[in-house]
Design a protein around this nucleic acid. Sequence first.
RNA 1: GGCGCCGUAGCCAAGUGGUAAGGCAGAGGUCUGCAAAACCUCCAUUCAUCGGUUCGAUUCCGAUCGGCGCCU
Length: 300
Amino acid sequence: MLVGPTGIGKTAVAVALATHWPLEVVSADSRQVYRGLDIATAKPTAREQARVPHHGLDLVAPGERYSAGRFARDAGEAIDRIRDRGRLPVVVGGTGLYVRALAEGLFHEPPLDAALRRRLDAWLARLDALELVRWAGRLDAGFAGGGRQRAHRAIEIALLSGRPLSHWQLAARAARSIDPWYIVLSAPRAVLHRRIEIRAREMVQRGLLGEVAAVLAHGARPGTPGLDGVGVREAVDVLIGRRSQDTLVEAMIISTRQYAKRQETWFRHQLAGERITLDATRGPEELAAEIADLWARAQT
RNA sequence: GGCGCCGUAGCCAAGUGGUAAGGCAGAGGUCUGCAAAACCUCCAUUCAUCGGUUCGAUUCCGAUCGGCGCCU
């Protein structure tokens, strides 16, 4: 599994790695699953995809909702198929929760009554964040906090499954599905910030606004997961008149930097298993060569 | 040259004779089906500088420096 913050160069390294082995990439990226957002999510280009088969891209429409659970199933199947072909699956991505869902598995969510769930959701939507968090704590002693969104989930699980979320979390720990080998790409902040800045400018030059406008024109609503990503959110704001175009790049840079910092935290603390951190200040070919070398030695 | 207003963190900004709000940025962290999400914590021994008044000054007074405005 090749992971690291946004803009660090994961895709380029994966493509370079393909010159060393017959590999296929399984994308672990919660936004690249959306169709029509190629520039905005820095999807591998057509040329890159021609050189290395990619899985997990363009799975759903931007207005739809994808999830970590769906990812774990889709990616698991993709990995099985790649192995059947005698090739090496390499998971490449920056979405920590997806990586964990795949490597460690999520708890097996019992079937939840859909009608009941809708009624519960409607009810919870009327509560303010403070009340929501209070209820989550009352229904699940192990509730770790995290605001409205996570409280909502904790309440939902506790009420509909009859057991608190923390109970299911413990139950899932036992069943790990795969034993991954992590390569974490990292770089000094200043280097990463510079790359993020360059990439944000390129995205706008290459037509980010037009791309997002097209997605909006197809009926996707602002705020849906596909349109609620770093950079995309800011572009939507420009298109609906909530932000001036001359502030777009700067706003994108700031939120991308903040996202990259969260990713660094995740990969520093949340990965279970063997992990090798590589300084990505070097070029992709050099990194790929080192990874190939490490892998070859690990095999003997 | 004269008069007036202003000077608080990297940026914006509130404030009071009793020991410096808040926001942004930044840093650190949390994480089991929205995760590019949602959250949490930290971040000015000091208020342009130097004097004075006072038990006590960021606050009042004076000077100096810097900015803005008006007048000449």
